[in-house]
Amino acid sequence: MSRIAQAFDSRQWSLIASASAKAAIVMMAIPLAGCGAGGFSLQKAEVDRSLITSSTPASATPIDSDRASDQTTIRNAVSSADIQELGGQAVPWANSGTGSRGSITELAEFKDKGQLCRRFTASRESFDGVALFKGEACLASAGIWLMQDFKAL
């Protein structure tokens, strides 16, 4: 036999196989021994107070300003509508500043103490949902329309 073949005869192969099996057992036993020796325990676990989390308070300003802007857009659509030509049809409106849109229905004109007013129902579709409003706008002095009433239904 050659010298290389002589180095690994059948007796040495069994020695190598048993050594690798022992090494595998030891490699699996070491992590288990760490857990069994008290390395991790739920009773000893504590809350990590070094982590700080929070949330920001909800701001009512953007929604309120969006609603006010939409209310102004609706008032402008109500004041500029030609009621006789509409014949009961809905008046569409859209506010590019807020992305809201909707339609104005039940638009009726009346006089209140000599002042010209318009009563209406308006729908509003926006990122926060769909809503229905009842409102009333009246013509004030100097030809300016003012919203007298605007309530969500």
Rank of each mutant, 00 (worst) to 15 (best):
Q148R: 15
E85P: 01
A140L: 00
A108C: 05
Q71M: 03
G39N: 03
D70Q: 06
A137P: 09
K134M: 05
T98P: 08
A24Y: 01
D82L: 02
D48Q: 04
S20P: 02
S41N: 09
L146G: 07
Q6F: 08
A21Y: 03
W13R: 11
I104E: 05
N95A: 06
R67P: 02
G135S: 06
P31H: 09
A108F: 08
G87Q: 11
T53M: 02
M147P: 05
W13T: 10
S103M: 14
T53N: 01
S41Q: 02
C138F: 02
N76C: 05
D70K: 09
A90C: 09
Q148E: 15
F110H: 12
T56E: 13
D70H: 07
I52F: 00
A68M: 11
I52G: 00
V91W: 05
D48T: 01
D70W: 04
S55N: 14
S96L: 13
E46K: 07
T72L: 11
G87F: 12
Q6C: 01
S50H: 01
Q148H: 14
I63Y: 12
A94Y: 08
A142H: 15
A60F: 10
K22W: 11
M27H: 04
M28T: 09
P92L: 06
W93T: 05
A29P: 03
G88V: 08
D112L: 14
P57K: 14
F150W: 09
F8C: 01
S123A: 03
D64K: 12
Q12D: 00
Q115L: 08
G114V: 05
D149R: 14
C35M: 13
P92K: 04
E109V: 07
L32C: 08
I4H: 03
A131K: 02
S141T: 10
G36N: 11
S20I: 08
A94I: 01
S80C: 06
W93P: 06
G97A: 05
Q43W: 06
S10P: 04
W145R: 12
Q148N: 15
P57S: 14
A90E: 15
L32G: 13
S79P: 07
A17I: 09
A17N: 10
D70F: 02
T105M: 09
